[in-house]
Amino acid sequence: MPYPEGHKIKVRGRIIESAAQAFRMNGIRDISVPVIMKGAGLTHGGFYSHFDNKEQLVAEACQYAISDTIALLQEAANQEKQEPKINAVIHYYLSQQHRDRTEMGCILPALSSEISRSSEEVRNIFTQEVERMIDFLADLAEVDKSTASALLSSMVGTLLLARSVSDSTLSDNLLTAGKQHAKELIKTS
């Protein structure tokens, strides 16, 4: 009996979602195709009917993860009624919840160091996704791309450091300082 229409697309989506979650938590190098497929509820034998190689999956997982992050940030902005919408995005991005839920968080702090050593194909897709995130921030904050680039760099760096330290007080202080700095950056632009 043949699969229903759209089955292959749904399965591919589950694989990409599983990969994005696994890469956010453990990086690219330490995650194997069988682990990704198991996370999608599949056996690893079917991987190559959906992807040419792991590099293609990494590229598509980056696209998926950035889309997911932008959607979460847009939702935070849409819920804000008082402050400028960009402040809601800054608060969400540099929150304890975002810091602690790595598997659902922004992929930029999780993968940037590994991506810099990846294939040209993956780096090109990652570059496009970083540009998309910059455009999102520039539009929302009504600032130029240079300011949005600085904002993104500041937020990603803050989140990376806050996730990296073992001292929870220091981590919280980094988030607080990052929020203050990010808001000042927008105010002065």
Rank of each mutant, 00 (worst) to 15 (best):
D52Y: 06
F136N: 01
S49K: 08
E83Y: 12
D135R: 07
C62W: 03
V122E: 06
L57H: 05
A138L: 02
E55P: 04
S118Y: 03
A148N: 07
F126V: 02
I134F: 04
E55A: 15
L151I: 00
Y93C: 05
D144Y: 12
L185Y: 03
K183S: 08
D139S: 10
V122M: 03
K81H: 11
P4T: 06
A148W: 01
Y3T: 01
A71E: 13
E17K: 12
T102K: 14
Y3R: 09
S113W: 12
E131Q: 15
I70Q: 04
A177K: 12
F23E: 03
S146I: 15
L160A: 13
L160V: 05
K54T: 09
R117C: 11
F51N: 08
I134V: 15
A20I: 02
R123P: 02
A76G: 10
I90N: 04
L152W: 01
A20P: 07
K8S: 13
A22V: 03
G45V: 09
K145C: 00
G46M: 11
L73N: 07
A76K: 10
E184S: 14
E121T: 09
T127R: 14
I70H: 01
S113D: 10
L111T: 00
L174P: 00
E17I: 00
V122T: 08
S18W: 05
D52F: 09
V122A: 06
M25R: 11
E103D: 04
M37V: 01
V33C: 09
Y92D: 02
S18N: 13
T43W: 13
L108W: 00
A76C: 10
A88C: 07
G6M: 12
N26R: 15
E55M: 08
I31T: 15
P2S: 07
R99V: 05
Y93A: 06
I107T: 00
G13E: 12
V143C: 12
I90K: 07
E142T: 14
I70N: 00
E121Q: 12
